[in-house]
Simulated assay, not measured.
Amino acid sequence: MNEQPLVSVIIPNYNYARTLSACIEAVQQQTYPSIEILVADDHSTDDSVSIARRHGVTVLETPTNSGVSIARNLGAEHANGQILFFLDSDVALDPDAVANAVAALNADPRLGAICGMYRAEPLFPAGLIKQYRAIQQYVWFGEVEGRIPGLHSALCAMRVEVFREIGPFNHRLRWTEEQEYGFRLNTRYEVRATREIRGRHDHDATVGVLLRKVFQRTRLGAPNWMRLNRLPGGAATGLRAIGSGFVFAAVLSLLLVPWLGPWALLGTAALLGIGIVLDARTYLYAYRHHGVLFGLQFTVLHLMVMFTSALAAGLGIVQGLLFPSWVRRLYGTEMTA
């Protein structure tokens, strides 16, 4: 590989005109000198395409809205670089992110992909929900630095020959494509996450959108996690999943209040306490860095997310057990071997 291989930064996009300029400009300001930028637009209905063209980057367009996997694959198909850097259009990279990604790939031929992490501050700080999500993902991603069983496709790099060997992103998936690709990639290579590749993410701004995404990704991912007997975040995710179960049980225990009275409330408090302890680092970060008032608000939101993820995981597991052919058809046996 050349000393400074060309890096193709592939930005899949659908209706993210509000963040696309910041995303592209951050790539254009990278310290690494050999970069081409391809925006793979998934038939946006806002001003995304015109914004991308004003920045002088290559713009590719899908004929219909087909999902992020199709957009990423389209970008990879037209890329000229020896390294592909996939970057979501709502992420603004730190200036040294691409240089650090290239250095990591050059240092270890066994490395299939190197993934970055979000910073604790959202791209456009505005409101409690964005700040909550930024902290949650900052803590969770930071726990799995090093080798990971999944993939952080929002900001990750791989050699073009590895992408061709593993194959394209699964176009059948719209919520769990990165989990499945990471599982597939890990059968032949190592995938690692590092704090050396950072970016600020424009997180969800409303509770409804946040919970809907958590529910969909968990429900659709759970059958495949069960089938493969592994979780995308490793041991830390396992403890947190157990904690979510305790939060779910705590909410259900409230149904017993008419019969058990204070004893049921005591049980609810105990179950909530266990659920919080199993994810203590997340709560502690919020209290330590943003104070008690924010910490209390954070706690309420996080308990809602934990309950939603437990409910979704349970439904997904039941769905996988009752309809195994649906799981095989969705993911494809060849995709998860």
Rank of each mutant, 00 (worst) to 15 (best):
G112P: 12
P122I: 07
R159I: 08
M158L: 15
G142A: 02
E190K: 08
G112L: 01
I166H: 02
A154V: 09
G116L: 02
Y132G: 07
R174L: 03
R192N: 04
E121D: 10
R159E: 15
H171V: 15
R192S: 03
A154C: 11
R133V: 11
E145K: 14
I166V: 15
I148S: 03
A193R: 14
T194F: 04
A113S: 13
R172Y: 11
E178W: 03
Y138E: 11
E161S: 15
L128I: 02
T187D: 07
G182N: 02
E143V: 02
I114D: 09
A154Q: 04
I114R: 08
Y189W: 14
W175Q: 15
R164Y: 11
I148G: 04
V162G: 06
V139K: 08
W140K: 12
L185N: 01
F183N: 05
Y138R: 05
L111V: 10
K130R: 15
A113C: 08
Y132K: 08
A120C: 10
E178A: 03
A134R: 01
G116W: 09
A113Q: 05
G146A: 05
F163D: 06
R159T: 03
C115K: 00
T187M: 13
F169Q: 05
G146S: 11
A134Q: 00
A120P: 05
A157K: 06
N170E: 13
G146W: 00
L123V: 03
E121S: 00
R184E: 10
S153R: 00
F124H: 13
A134W: 05
W140R: 15
M117T: 11
V160G: 02
L185P: 09
L111G: 10
A154P: 02
L173F: 13
E165H: 15
L111S: 06
R133G: 06
C115A: 11
G112W: 10
R188L: 12
A157G: 14
E178H: 11
C156V: 14
E121H: 04
N186G: 14
R174E: 07
A157T: 06
F183M: 03
E165Q: 15
A134G: 08
R192C: 10
Y138V: 02
E190F: 11
I129P: 10
G127K: 09
P168S: 09
Y189G: 01
T187N: 12
I129G: 06
E145C: 08
T194P: 02
T187A: 15
G112S: 00
